[in-house]
Structures are given as C-alpha cells and as structure tokens.
C-alpha cells in the first residue's frame, strides 16, 4: 500500500470513529416527521350570501373537517378520499412532543429522510475531496450529478413546459388527467411548436436529418429578432439616457456642488474612454491610444470591483455548505436551537 493511501485510510478511520463517538455521546443528524391523515369530501358549495339569485352552487373537494365545519353535505354518491401526509419537524419539536405525551404515534423518525441527510453529507464531502485531487469518491459524485440533473431537467421540461404549454393548449381534454383544472379552447397556433419539435427529433431518423435545421433556423431567427430590438431598447438607449448628466451641478439654493460635478465628469469621461477602447476603426496609437489606455484602466477598476464583490458571494456559498455539515449533519453547532437535547 502506498504511503499516501495509508495516511488517508487512517484519516478516514479516525473520522469514522469520531463520528460514532459523537453519535453515542450527543447524537448526530436525524430527521423527524409528523404524519397527518388528510381526508377530502366532495361537497356542493352554495353561492355566498348576497350573491345574485341565479348563481348556481359549485362542486368542490374540501378537507372533510372544513366541510363539516361549514355544515356542507357531500355530493350524493361521492366517496371520501384521503392519504397520510408527512411534514418535517425539528428534532426539538419531536422531543418536546414525545416528552409531553410519550404515546403519540404521529411523530416519528423518518428513515428515508435520515438516509437522505447522510447521502447529502457524503456527496458534499465527495465534491470537496476533489480539491485534494481527483479520486473515486468525486467520480461517483460526478457521475450521480450528471445523471440526476440531466433527468431532473427532462422531468421539469415535461411537466412544466410540454404538458401545460403545448399539450394543454393543443388539446385541453387530453391533459385533464394530470391538469384537472385546465380550461379553454384548443389553440391551433400551437401546432407550430409541435411540428417543429417533431422536425427537431427527425434527427434521430437515419434519413433527412437536415429537416432538423428548420426548427433550428426558426429558433435562431426569432432569437435574433427579439434580442436585436430588446437590447437596443433597454441596454443601448437606456444607458445613453442614464449617462446624460450635468457636468457642473448647480443647486438653485446651495450653488455650485463640487463633488456631484466631479463624479459626473469622471463618469461621463470614463464611459467615453471605454467606448474609445472598443472602437475598431483606429489602431490604439497616439491620442486615441492614450484615451483607450484610460478606457482599459476604467475597465480594470470595474473588474477589480466585480471581483471584490463576487468574492463575498462565493464565501457565503461555502459557509452554507459547512453550516450544513456542522449543524444539520454533525450537530456540532446549533445556532437556531433545533437539535440541542432538552433536559
């Protein structure tokens, strides 16, 4: 065995031992849930008091308790439907609940969620391990993230785009099994994306793969058209507008204002210098070169500021991952007081 492997093996074993010790002494990450029986009945809801005389009652599904409270009678022939729902509770809520009434059965440890928590911790550590160097743990994590995320977006695309934005428009009746409240008439314009989609998938067929260029051409054409005006409107015109500033700010009561004037002059001058830098028709020589150089300096200051600002965000991201490990998983810290043992 290589020395490095040995060292890492020892580190992992020690870590594991410490984890077990921590678990025995003060506990480690667990997830609890509260279960609840949901019951729904189909009832006739009369129109509200004061409504027009010709308004008809509507048929709705309501939680059984709610319907009973409003003394509504179930629709004849309908059956009560329901299932058991789970909602997460903090360990503290679980302990307090069980302490108050040890016979409660609605509060319990959730095995899938607890396993999930540990899986998440494993994945977190596996990604971090890449910082040391590429290794099998990272490779597993990488393989998982690629597979899960690719499928994740396919599922989102199907349920959030294809179903409501194409199928529901083309034929509302055909999607009622999944989107029961869908209304409206079929919109035949949506045959266009349907046809284009089919053409796009034509690529999979051995013949006529070039058909797929048509939808591509459509996408690129519409994109170019939309962006051209939108960018000229919002970024081009609006940015010129915002750059039109008085170079000498004079307040009618207070007189000449030095700092606002200075800032405006710097701002306008800097924008112009940067524009000169982007000018393609002239070589950066002589006067133009000098101004362009000033433009680069402004850009560099901009980049420096951007860098400094962004660093903040990146550190917060790391902080939240480490908080997850220390707080949710290892129970080392408890800033929001949710898993410190109650006595």
């Amino acid at each position: 065995m290589k020395r490095e492997t040995t060292v890492w093996l020892v580190v992992m074993l020690v870590g594991l031992a410490m984890l077990v010790a921590k678990g025995v002494v003060s506990g480690v990450g667990r997830e609890y849930v509260q279960t609840e029986q949901k019951r729904f009945v189909q009832v006739e809801v009369p129109p509200p008091i004061g409504a027009d005389a010709d308004e008809k009652p509507t048929t709705q599904w309501l939680p059984a308790a709610d319907a009973a409270a409003r003394s509504l009678t179930p629709v004849p022939g309908s059956t009560e439907l329901g299932w058991t729902a789970e909602s997460p509770v903090t360990p503290r809520a679980y302990w307090e609940g069980m302490k108050a009434d040890p016979s409660r059965t609605d509060l319990r440890l959730s095995v899938p969620r607890t396993i999930g928590l540990w899986v998440a911790a494993f994945f977190t550590l596996a990604i971090f391990s890449f910082l040391y160097r590429d290794n099998p743990f990272y490779k597993i994590a990488e393989a998982c993230v690629v597979g899960v995320s690719a499928a994740y977006w396919m599922v989102v695309g199907f349920w959030d785009v294809i179903m409501p934005n194409m199928m529901a428009k083309l034929s509302p009746d055909s999607v009622r099994w999944a989107i029961p409240d869908v209304t409206g008439e079929p919109e035949w314009a949506y045959t266009v994306p349907l046809v284009l989609s089919i053409m796009l998938l034509w690529r999979l067929s051995p013949k006529g793969a070039w058909i797929a260029r048509w939808p591509l051409a459509f996408i690129i054409g519409t994109t170019a058209g939309l962006r051209l005006v939108a960018f000229l409107h919002t970024d081009f015109l609006a940015q010129i507008r915002n750059s039109i500033l008085p170079l000498a700010v004079v307040d009618q009561t207070a007189g000449f204002q030095f700092w606002p004037s200075f800032n405006n002059i710097v701002l306008v001058g800097a924008v112009l210098a940067c524009l000169v830098y982007f000018f393609f028709s002239f070589e950066h020589k002589g006067f133009v070169g000098g101004v362009a150089r000033g433009g680069i300096w402004v850009l560099m200051i901009t980049f420096g500021a951007g860098f400094g600002y962004t660093v903040m965000g990146r550190i917060a991201l790391l902080a939240i991952r480490l908080e997850f490990l220390m707080d949710n998983w290892l129970w080392l810290i408890d800033p929001t007081n949710i898993h410190t043992k109650i006595t």
């Binding site: 480490l322 220390m326 800033p335």
Partner: peptide
C-alpha cells in the same frame, strides 16, 4: 469553518 463553529 472556524468562525462558523465559534459563532455557532
């Protein structure tokens, strides 16, 4: 990590 632990 250290500040998170200490502040926590």
């Amino acid at each position: 990590a250290v500040p998170i632990y200490v502040i926590g």
